[in-house]
């Protein structure tokens, strides 16, 4: 009995230590953003500073001539718009490909899509520069939003859900001579709530974190989002360490909150998307 208890305590101790490894960088980041320079140099490990300093947040109010508000707005707008487009295009697309897989062209579309998601993402971004150049969308928010709307795992999540609908449900509606649009909106859509929530959450998290396509498509800092602004602040000369930590905190904290509030959806969605893909 006592040996069992000791084992348990040791196990929880180890699990807490490993978890601390994952969480510590976030705590250190938040803490550093509120520290004075002296506190950082003398006590780099102290997580709760003796006095709070908001100087770092005032310092990043304007970066390379662009206000922090612009980056926040770009992040919100680009994330929101690309999430909506991803949701609609992959949702309807997966539904069509699931219901009528034998229609001419649909088989080819599926193979094409698989090829696209297997192509290493950062290598896809480089030629996207050429595509944006040809489309005249270089440096535009529209170009960024459209590129981010090509979602890798969203299609699979939707497809998996459609496959789980009993065939009889759709057949019954067809017998009643309901139109395809009606079947989708009146029969399938009401059942799709959970998958829509999952896909929305995952897409928001993925697109909020995007930086490389935004950097490549952008022509000036005007279209930067928070992670891209963070990256460019980080590569400036004469670094402002606390400022970087403050911006990193602003970039990360909203995501952490969304994740903590919806963790079950997010984790399960990501796994089933991966297993399927």
């Amino acid at each position: 009995m006592s040996r069992d208890t000791a084992l348990r305590i040791a196990a929880y101790g180890l699990a807490i230590a490993v978890s601390a490894f994952f969480v510590f960088p976030y705590l250190w980041m938040i803490s550093a953003s509120f520290k004075s320079t002296e506190a950082i140099l003398t006590e780099p490990l102290q997580l709760i500073p003796d006095s709070l300093s908001f100087k770092a947040y005032r310092d990043i109010a304007v970066m390379s001539g662009v206000g922090l508000g612009t980056y926040v707005w770009n992040s919100l707008w680009i994330t929101l718009a690309s999430t909506v487009i991803t949701l609609l295009s992959t949702g309807f697309g997966a539904y069509a490909l699931y219901r009528a897989p034998k229609l001419p062209g649909f088989g080819l579309l599926r193979v094409g899509f698989l090829l696209v998601i297997m192509y290493p993402y950062m290598l896809l971004v480089m030629p996207v520069y050429l595509v944006m150049f040809k489309l005249g969308l270089l440096g535009t928010v529209t170009g960024i939003i459209l590129f981010l709307s090509v979602g890798p795992i969203q299609f699979f999540l939707f497809e998996q859900f459609f496959r789980s609908i009993p065939r009889e449900v759709i057949e019954a509606a067809r017998m009643d001579r309901a139109s395809e649009t009606r079947i989708l909106f009146r029969v399938v859509a009401p059942m799709a709530r959970p998958v829509v929530v999952t896909v929305t959450l995952i897409t928001i998290l993925l697109n909020w974190a995007q930086w490389f396509p935004i950097l490549v498509i952008s022509r000036s800092t005007d279209t930067y989002t928070l992670p891209v602004a963070l990256l460019s602040l980080n590569s400036e000369l004469g670094v402002n360490f606390q400022g970087i930590m403050a911006l990193a905190t602003l970039t990360t904290l909203p995501v952490i909150l969304v994740y903590l509030a919806t963790q079950k959806y997010v984790i399960e969605g990501m796994i089933s998307g991966a297993v399927k893909g």
Binding site: F22, V23, P25, Y26, W28, M29, L205, W208, A209, W211, L226, P227, V228, L230, L231, N234, I244, M245, A248, T251, T252, V255, I256, Y259, Q263, V266, I267, M270
Partner: peptide, 14 residues
């Protein structure tokens, strides 16, 4: 799983 969903740029900068 927390780092997986947070922006990688921020994590690596830290």
């Amino acid at each position: 799983f927390l780092p997986v969903v947070t922006p990688d740029v921020a994590g690596y900068i830290v």
